[in-house]
Computed example of a mutant assay.
Amino acid sequence: MKPKVFLEFVEIKSLIASVLPFVLGTLYAIYNYQQVHLGYLALFFVASSLFHMATNANDNYQDFLHAPRNDANREFLETTNVVGVNQISIQQARVITFGLGGVSLLLGLWLVSRTGLPLLWMGLYSYAVGYFYSGGLKPISAGPFGEFFSGFTMGFMIFWIAVYINTYNQVALTFKGTGQVLVASGLAIFAISNIMLANNICDMQEDIALGRHTILYYLGKPTMLRVFAWSYVAGYGCLIIAVIIGVLPKFSLLTLVSAIPVFKNTRLFLKRQVKTETFILAIKNASLICLMFAVFMGLGLIFG
């Protein structure tokens, strides 16, 4: 398999969605606990990145494998899905998927042996979501909870695991501490879940043809477009609350500047939902929000 095809198969461009929550969780740990474990953190970064690629690969080949073979889906199978377009064999797809996932699992288990069982439970949840997102008899992505699981798992769990790995030997896990991490990661959660929502909005008719009953199927496009817009508002609200309760530096509030281009992009998406034209706006929004969040959190560590 050519490197270009491999990178397309694992959707390498989407790694930003897991890298930035990883950075944010690390900055959170430094700000609140003044502690970082660079070696363990580097291994977690590699493990989470490999698993993200494995999940993307699994998603692509499961979509190809389970798509109905009829005239209505011929375009999807032959010109849209990366497996069909590049004639990737199912055997190749599985080797890549389980190879990446296997290496990630081994690294994760070693980290568990060094940091403790809480990481095991976090990891088991994440791996289960990663597989069942597009695998199994009833994939998560084909149902109404895809947005929740994608946003929560990538926006919160990666953030939370990064915090845990940096503080496992200093801070005990508590409901209060977990709740504070949840609020602090809220901006990332909503921004990332909106990527999935924008994708489902653009693919609504195709999903119905493929037998997927996403949340659009149940609540309709007009309602979910409103949810898409208000999700950004909710994320910014979480940011403000996190600063008020003292778990994020005040400099983080400068992330609110991103609301100007984010709401501009949102208006464009609300007017026109076309996969090849406007879906990218949700990715730009999430990248801009998380990047500015990380930059201003970093500045907050320096200037208080």
Score class of each variant (00 low, 15 high):
Ile140Arg: 07
Lys138Met: 13
Gln92Asp: 11
Phe159Gly: 06
Gln180Glu: 15
Phe148Arg: 01
Ala142Met: 10
Asn169Arg: 08
Gly235Met: 02
Tyr125Thr: 12
Arg272Lys: 15
Leu301Tyr: 05
Tyr127Glu: 11
Pro118Gln: 09
Leu291Thr: 13
Thr97Pro: 06
Phe156Tyr: 15
Gly220Thr: 07
Ser185Leu: 04
Asn70Phe: 03
Ala162Arg: 03
Leu106Cys: 03
Gly99Arg: 00
Glu78Leu: 14
Tyr168Gln: 08
Phe263Lys: 05
Ala93Phe: 03
Asn194Met: 00
Val85Tyr: 08
Ile30Gln: 00
Leu268Lys: 13
Leu268Thr: 07
Asn265Trp: 14
Ser48Tyr: 00
Leu173Cys: 01
Lys4Asp: 15
Val36Cys: 10
Leu291Cys: 04
Phe132Arg: 11
Leu253Ala: 00
Val243Ser: 03
Ser193Thr: 08
Ile201Ala: 14
Ala209Thr: 15
Ile283Tyr: 09
Leu291Val: 09
Phe44Leu: 09
Gly102Phe: 01
Leu256Cys: 08
Gln35Trp: 06
Ser104Gly: 05
Phe175Val: 10
Leu187Lys: 00
Lys13Trp: 13
Gly237Ile: 09
Ala286Val: 06
Val112Ile: 12
Gly235Asp: 03
Met196His: 07
Ser113His: 00
Val36Asp: 04
Val23Pro: 07
Arg212Ser: 10
Asn285Arg: 01
Leu210Ile: 05
Leu301His: 03
Leu301Gln: 04
Gly146Pro: 00
Phe263Leu: 02
Tyr133Cys: 02
Gly298Lys: 07
Ile241Cys: 06
Ala54Tyr: 09
Phe152Thr: 06
Leu65Glu: 13
Phe51His: 09
Ile96Phe: 08
Gly84Ala: 10
Thr255Trp: 01
Thr153Asp: 09
Gln62Val: 14
Gln34Tyr: 13
Gly237Ala: 06
Gly300Trp: 02
Gly186Pro: 03
Pro249Gln: 12
Tyr33Gln: 13
Phe296Thr: 08
Thr278Leu: 04
Glu206Gln: 14
Gly237Asn: 03
Thr278Gly: 07
Leu105Gly: 02
Leu225Val: 13
Leu124Glu: 12
Leu197Pro: 01
Ser89Thr: 14
Thr115Tyr: 06
Phe132Ser: 03
Arg226Met: 12
Tyr236Lys: 03
Ala234Asn: 03
Tyr33Glu: 14
His213Trp: 06
Ala209Asn: 15
Val36Trp: 02
Phe149Lys: 00
Leu77Thr: 10
Thr97Lys: 08
Lys2Phe: 07
Gly186Ile: 05
Arg226Glu: 14
Ser193Gln: 14
Ser134Ala: 11
Ala128Phe: 15
Arg74Trp: 09
Ile241Val: 13
Glu75His: 13
Ala229Phe: 11
Tyr28Trp: 05
Ser126Leu: 09
Gly143Lys: 13
Tyr168Asn: 02
Lys271Arg: 12
Gly151Thr: 05
Ile244Tyr: 06
Leu50Tyr: 02
Glu78Lys: 12
Leu119His: 08
Gly136Cys: 05
Val36His: 04
Ala234Val: 14
Val227Ile: 12
Tyr217Ile: 11
Tyr61Arg: 09
Leu50Lys: 02
Gly116Arg: 04
Thr153His: 07
Val103Ser: 02
Asn70Met: 00
Val82Tyr: 07
Gln170Tyr: 14
Ala198Ser: 10
Asn200Val: 04
Ile195Met: 12
Leu216Asp: 14
Asn32Ser: 09
Ala67Gln: 07
Leu119Ile: 10
Ser185Arg: 04
Ala142Ile: 06
Ala242Leu: 08
Thr174Tyr: 09
Leu107Val: 02
Ile245Glu: 04
